[in-house]
Every structure is written in C-alpha cells, then in structure tokens.
Design a protein around this nucleic acid. Sequence first.
DNA 1: ATAGCTGCAAATGCTTTGCAAGGCC
DNA 2: GGCCTTGCAAAGCATTTGCAGCTAT
Lengths: 140, 140
Amino acid sequence: MYDDREILLMKTRLREAGLRPTNQRLALSSILYSQGNRHITAERLHIEAQEQGIRVSLATVYNTLHQFTSADLLREVVVDSSRSYFDTNMGPHHHFFIENKGELVDIDGDDVEIRGLPSAPDGHVIKGIDVIVRLVAPKT
Amino acid sequence: MYDDREILLMKTRLREAGLRPTNQRLALSSILYSQGNRHITAERLHIEAQEQGIRVSLATVYNTLHQFTSADLLREVVVDSSRSYFDTNMGPHHHFFIENKGELVDIDGDDVEIRGLPSAPDGHVIKGIDVIVRLVAPKT
DNA sequence: ATAGCTGCAAATGCTTTGCAAGGCC
DNA sequence: GGCCTTGCAAAGCATTTGCAGCTAT
C-alpha cells in the first residue's frame, strides 16, 4: 500500500499525464507500483483491487490500464493471444514467458545485445524490439 | 494453385501427420504453401478460399490452422493481442511487424545473433526465442 | 458549474464447441 | 461400415462501448 508521500507523487504523475487523480486510479496505481516491477492482467488487477476492499469495475480497470499505457506509465506486452499483460517496468528490457504458468519474468535490457538485424524497410520507423524467450516450467 | 505433383506431396504430408487429405485441407494448403512463405490470419485465409470458389467454413479454417500448427506444418506468431497470425515459414527466423498495416515480414534467423541472454531459470526448458521488431510504416 | 470519471449492462470481435450430416479408407 | 471431418449455429471469453449518474477542480 502507498504511504502519503507516494500518494502525492502519484497524484502529480497523473496530473502531468492529464488524468485526474481519482480514488480508483490511485488505488490501482498503488497495486501496480508499490511492489516493484509487475506484470499483470486486467482480470488479476481487478481481483487484487477487490481483495483490498477497493470498489472498481472491470471496465474502469481496462480504461485505467489503457490510459496509463498512453501516458507511458505502463507498457503492454504481447505474449499470449488470449490475454493482455501490462508491465510496470518502463526501462529497456525483455522477457521470459513461462507458458504453462502464464508468467512473465524480466530480462535486463542492458545485458542483451542483438546483432545482425537488417535495417527497417525504407521510411519505416522502429517503435521497439521485443525479445521473448518462451519457457516451459518443470512439472514439479 | 497447386499442380498435381504438389497435391500428391501435400496428401502425403497430411497423412504423415495423421490428417486425412480432405478437399478443404488440400485447398487451404494450396493457398498457404504455393506462394512462398506467408503470414496469414484465419479471416484472411477464409476470404482467399472463398475468392477461389472453395467452400470452407470459418470453423474449419480455424480447425485446420490449429491442426497444421500441431503437425508442425505451420507456426503461430503472437504479435497482436486481437488476432492470431500463422506463419508458413518453419525455419528459424524472426519478424518485423508493421503495426499500422497488420503485416509481418520475415527476418532470416541466420543473420541474427542474440548475446547476453541469461540462462533459463532452473528446470525450465526453452521452447523458442521470438524477436519482434515493431515498425510503423510511413503515411504516404 | 462542468468537463471528466465511473459503473453497469449490453455489445463486439475473435475464437471455440456441440452436434448432425457427409466424406474418406 | 466406422471413424474422421465439416458446417452451422450457438456459446465463450476477453475487451470495448454507451450512457446515466457521480466527482474533482
């Protein structure tokens, strides 16, 4: 949970992004940003909010995730065709995706070097490079 | 369109995969494999089939795409959370994804080298490594 | 006051499924 | 003949949207 100082910080970040610091947005940011980097789906964020006694609708969770993504407070990671993951780590990095758990793990971007990529076709702008290492966890 | 020799070849490949070489499957393979490597969605494959006067239901297109994927005749590429792309190129390679066109372009895997990836967590098996270079095409 | 938010429920879009009829070996 | 396939329509699921009521400034 956020302490008072963090609430103020987040209020400022939201205002700077042109978003009103509503209770729902502050509560969701608390879940997102007060436990280190996270990879979370809309459904899971909704559940965690409920567990903390926060009343938010799933529609608002989706709205918030997209608004945060537009505001560069969050990024969307496409690894699974059936659900969207949102990542609070905005630095350059890549991912392990553990397919049988639906779990993402960060790979620090500073460690990784990609060589030999052809340049983008004429006029095209590179928006980003995603490296996804797909894993299967042991049966236990 | 397939010629007779190619039809026989595909019949064999299907049988080897434990799939009966039905008209629908042969027609869809013709669209998939007789024009070089392709990246295609279920919807587009369905449309192209109709255009060639082949009667196939969308459900059968989906079934076929998944059966071909299980049989290693096709691979699924996850780049867009709202639709699935299927890739006929089974060799090692990566992709440009042109976001404003929904279009995939192959990057030969032999040219690309990735250094510095940490090893997978204990016991985890690497199923594959995907590199996706996200592009935006010029407005023109 | 008023522009922006929220929640609800309905709608959407892609994908999957159940099942009866048809096709392949 | 018997099992595999197909097509249709219905169902499923994650996500989006419309809109009336509420809230921050």
